[in-house]
């Protein structure tokens, strides 16, 4: 088996789940403060899935989503992808721009910029928590945004992993506002070599 991710122990999976928990908890708080709404999040899913199955985690490869992508630099290079179904992204823009729910029907330059900033803030919060937990300092790139089919957007991350293996390790959290108006998926996808660094930092390497 050439995949290093396919052979993780239960303890290691737990450690990763805890990292996801702390990181996403911090992100959810940040988002909640920005939009002034309660955010519920589920227990992070840590999954090792065949690359081709990753789009199914968000509803299938042809579902229309808005994706904010950030490359993460540092000792454990990774990718962050924040995916929102189209309707959720539009509602989030309504809130950020002080519009009525349903006003946003397509994204203009300013809307995109606002969503990228959200991706930026969530990633910053996530990585800060990760730093407190692991002492690994990680810096996000400037964000990039695309609105398209989930499979096409995820392929950016999956192709990078595809060079090293046939499975992806994803730490994924689902966010929901309490009115269910916004649902989002936050993915942290460590590069294959980064996994070892993260696991040793929390003592389960």
């Amino acid at each position: 088996m050439s995949d290093d991710v396919a052979s993780l122990s239960a303890t290691q999976m737990d450690a990763l789940r805890e990292i996801g928990n702390v990181g996403a908890g911090n992100s959810a708080t940040a988002l909640s403060q920005i939009i002034n709404k309660r955010i519920d999040m589920n227990v992070p899913r840590v999954s090792i899935v065949p690359l081709g199955d990753v789009p199914d985690l968000v509803g299938g490869p042809d579902v229309m989503v808005v994706g904010v992508f950030l490359r993460v630099y540092g000792k454990a290079p990774s990718n962050i992808l924040f995916l929102l179904p189209k309707e959720s992204a539009f509602y989030l823009v309504d809130m950020l721009m002080g519009k009525k729910r349903g006003d946003t029907q397509k994204l203009d330059f300013l809307d995109e910029s606002a969503l990228m900033e959200i991706g930026n803030i969530l990633s910053g919060a996530y990585l800060n928590a990760l730093f407190n937990f692991t002492n690994i300092s990680l810096l996000p790139s400037i964000p990039a945004l695309a609105m398209d089919m989930a499979g096409a957007i995820l392929s950016v991350v999956l192709i990078q992993l595809g060079q090293m293996g046939d499975h992806a390790l994803v730490i994924e959290t689902e966010f929901k506002t309490d009115d269910e108006g916004i649902k989002g998926h936050f993915f942290l996808v460590p590069d294959p070599g980064s996994l070892e660094t993260i696991l040793s930092a929390v003592g389960v390497g």
Binding site: L51, G151, A152, S155
Partner: peptide
Amino acid sequence: MADLKVGKAPATLISYGLGSC
């Protein structure tokens, strides 16, 4: 993704959501 199918008429072969692939 990273998959291959062959067939004959009247089948249609389809692949969803290609980005850089």
